[in-house]
Amino acid sequence: MGIVNKKTQFILNLIMTILALACILPFVLLIMASLTDEVVLTTQGYSFFPSKFSLDAYQYLLSAAGRILRAYGMTIFVTAVGTTGNVFLTMFMAYLLSKKDLPFRTAISFFVFFTMLFNGGMVPSYLIWTEIFHVRDTVAGLIFPNLFLGAYNIILMRTYFTSNVPEEIIDAARIDSCSEIGILFKIALPLSRPMIATVALFSGLAYWNDWINGLYYLVRERDLYTIQNVLNTMVSNAEFLQSSAAISSFQSLNISIPTAGIRMAIAVIAVVPVLIIYPFFQKSFVKGIVVGGVKG
């Protein structure tokens, strides 16, 4: 048994290592590309061992260091607030729908799911958020439109509640005259830590990577830009400066901007914080929730 187990573990680790390498090597390639001289990048392509290094891309980013740091702060704030709100709204709706004998259950499920299929496009959404709720040029414009609650997470969590929180325990709690809200907070949520972490991760990543809200709703308040907005602006400016439309008339361009290198460098600095934070989420993915113990 022991030997078989060891062998199995070895094979499992081998497979996972291969998959992990497939994910990490391109990332390393990206880091190397961000450090490669632009001309070398164009003529010799991407390489793990570039023939000429250059820090131009990071230097260009450094020229906006103050703005980038402020934008990081903004992103962290928006992500924290937005994700917290999202997780609670998701939990409450999902828990409601997980009740199998809930009146109007099918109708409400349909109501939620329908939002995944149909949307009215960016113009009506913009009109509602700006003309009725006046979120334009405020932090609210980064938090509320689109990202605050989504059907996907609700349905994911509902499924988790129905398949992972045994009805027996809930019934037992009812008999102990625990209120429905009490059951949610005392039993269902503690049993659902892995899924809460998952939803928080999904929502957090959505906020972290979002630049659409900043683009649509921060027209006159660029001071509120998030990191993705700032980085996007830099890419777009660098690209535009390279494009022939600008270059034929821009008599003032006397700096060299490494477009491809900047893209890579930006990808690196946007990804690294997530990789630092992610292990904290993983603490919630711990096995060993033994329902039998709760039943006691």
């Binding site: 113009v123 649509y216 400016n237």
Partner: peptide
Amino acid sequence: VLIDFGSVSQVMTLMLSSTEE
């Protein structure tokens, strides 16, 4: 109003659709 080249299409479309500012 400062608008980035990369997003001019979306931003202009939205700003031209609303009478608010």
